[in-house]
């Protein structure tokens, strides 16, 4: 559960745990929204390719880097533990 994250459709993200705010690109918003809604990280490339005009290889590469970045800046860290959602 990523219930510490409040993501609006404008791409504005509030991390209730840290109080930090972020802006995400449209695809970034799409991917994080999917994760918040419980999607398995494995399914993200497929979802992205279905909705956006991108080749699977590029989608996979970009998602990998995006998830690493989310994890790196700490937004995937859950509220009450150090457990992380990983790709």
């Amino acid at each position: 559960m990523l219930d510490h994250l409040a993501l609006s459709e404008s791409g504005f993200l509030f991390d209730a745990r840290t109080g930090l705010t972020y802006t995400l690109s449209r695809t970034g918003t799409f991917l994080l929204r999917s994760l918040i809604d419980g999607a398995d990280a494995e399914t993200l490339p497929e979802r992205l390719v279905a909705s956006y005009d991108v080749e699977p290889l590029v989608a996979r590469r970009d998602i990998e880097q995006f998830l690493f970045r989310l994890s790196d800046i700490g937004v995937l860290r859950k509220d009450d533990s150090d457990e992380e959602v990983t790709a």
């Binding site: 705010t21 972020y22 802006t23 695809t27 991917l31 909705s51 956006y52 005009d53 995006f66 937004v75």
Partner: peptide
Amino acid sequence: MSRLPKDPVVTRLPYEPPTIIAHKNGLA
């Protein structure tokens, strides 16, 4: 090219890489 629609029947949204930018004080 990655930006050309592969299947012209399905309309997909134009792609941009997924990114996240932190709001820094004074740089938001």
